[in-house]
Write a protein that binds this DNA or RNA. Structure first.
Length: 154
DNA sequence: GCCAACGTTGGC
DNA sequence: GCCAACGTTGGC
């Protein structure tokens, strides 16, 4: 059974349009343990709501899918990279990531205010823990967000 | 651009 | 192990 997730990206850093252009991408740079643990729990074929933060309003803008399960984030070992982590051991990597692929861009974005106002979405992690960049989504929540976007279930 | 909320670090 | 200081995220 595929699971459901939500992944955030700053709209002006890597948008759904960038993902569409690239087709797929390596979700590097996550340096938060909870977010990392969520990526480790992902399986190929899981669905991902793609969310833009730092835009007005923040919004779910599309759909992506996990295409490669967790492996060590190579940027943590590159001293020249901004995501370099000197404390990470190659034999026991601290940071992991997944690859996701573009599925669909929504014609209609689902804004955070609408999500907050929607009955049935009050328990979404997005609503209650605004800092977590990779988070689980319940099936019913996923279905509701898709419905709000005017999209059919994948 | 501001700043509240949160996670992490490090001194003790 | 506590907690103050610091850095970052992200809503507004």
């Amino acid at each position: 059974m595929a699971k459901y997730w939500l992944m955030k990206s700053e709209a002006d850093v890597y948008s759904i349009d960038d993902l569409k252009k690239d087709g797929r991408t390596m979700w590097d740079g996550v340096r938060n343990y909870q977010a990392r643990n969520n990526m480790k729990a992902m399986e190929k074929g899981d669905w991902v709501l793609y969310y833009h933060s730092r835009q007005t309003p923040s919004a779910v803008t599309g759909l992506a899918r996990v295409v490669k399960e967790a492996y060590p984030d190579p940027t943590q070992f590159d001293p020249k990279h901004k995501y370099f982590d000197a404390k990470s051991d190659e034999d026991d990597p601290r940071w992991w990531l997944v690859d996701i692929e573009f599925v669909r861009k929504f014609d209609e974005q689902v804004g955070l205010p609408d999500i907050k106002a929607r009955k049935g979405l009050a328990d979404m992690v997005l609503v209650n823990n605004s800092r977590l960049s990779v988070q689980p989504v319940r099936k019913a929540e996923f279905e509701t967000v898709l419905k709000m976007a005017g999209e059919a279930m994948p």
